[in-house]
């Protein structure tokens, strides 16, 4: 291939890449904090593993070995949750994770890793089986993201104030966790994609 053909092919690649595409149907997963919107994050990640390397709780996992997502990080909060140290965002070479300071106010404003979904039928206080409060105790934003209601101190979650770190999911004593952090829907890009 001569240089002209190569340049032509590269131009074609650029043209193809700039044509608007619908986001690929990635397996929706909880991404590390500061991640770009679903779809855009997968395009910017080069799978260098640095985020996992610096994660103090090793909560960052990678997709199954034979999938296209094998090099893209995700968090399985039911096993291990994010402690919001923001180190992963500071080492990402391509800014697929937008760098953020470990400041509670900044995190509250910008980080949306997922949406809390409570299944009341499995939650102990909601079933009058005890005063558990574990989710409330581990929540980095108590009263804002989760509050306790009624005499049994049953938790009530507020998705708009929840950063989605998943500490509640990790702490939930039910075998099949009553509180789950669900991946973000496609339509609403998280506020972390806003320029700082």
């Amino acid at each position: 291939m001569n240089r002209r053909a190569l340049l032509g092919a590269l131009t074609a690649a650029v043209a193809l890449a700039t044509v608007p595409r619908r986001a690929r149907a990635h397996a929706r997963k909880i991404r590390p904090p500061g991640a770009l919107a679903p779809g855009r994050f997968e395009q910017a990640c080069i799978g260098c593993f640095r985020c996992a390397e610096v994660c103090p709780t090793t909560c960052i996992r990678f997709g199954s070995a034979f999938s296209l997502d094998q090099a893209i990080p995700y968090i399985d909060a039911s096993e291990r949750a994010c402690v919001l140290c923001m180190k992963c965002t500071q080492v990402c070479p391509t800014q697929a994770l937008v760098p953020l300071a470990a400041d509670p106010d900044i995190i509250a404003k910008t980080v949306r890793m997922g949406v809390p979904v409570l299944t009341r039928s499995r939650c102990l206080p909601w079933n009058l089986e005890g005063i558990c409060r574990l989710c409330y105790q581990v929540c980095p934003y108590p009263e804002e993201a989760v509050e306790l209601t009624g005499p049994r101190k049953a938790p009530l979650f507020h998705p708009e104030a929840c950063v989605g770190c998943g500490l509640c999911e990790e702490a939930c004593p039910e075998q099949n966790h009553a509180i789950r952090i669900e991946p973000l829907p496609d339509a609403a890009p998280p506020p972390s994609t806003r320029p700082p």
């Binding site: 190569l6 092919a9 590269l10 074609a12 690649a13 193809l16 890449a17 595409r21 986001a23 690929r24 990635h26 779809g39 997968e42 395009q43 990640c45 080069i46 799978g47 260098c48 296209l68 997502d69 094998q70 090099a71 893209i72």
Partner: peptide
């Protein structure tokens, strides 16, 4: 090289690291 870049942009993911 070009195939991976084009294929990646069609699939919406980075293919080179794979």
């Amino acid at each position: 090289m070009v195939g991976l870049l084009v294929g990646g942009s069609l699939l919406g993911t980075q293919l080179v690291p794979l």
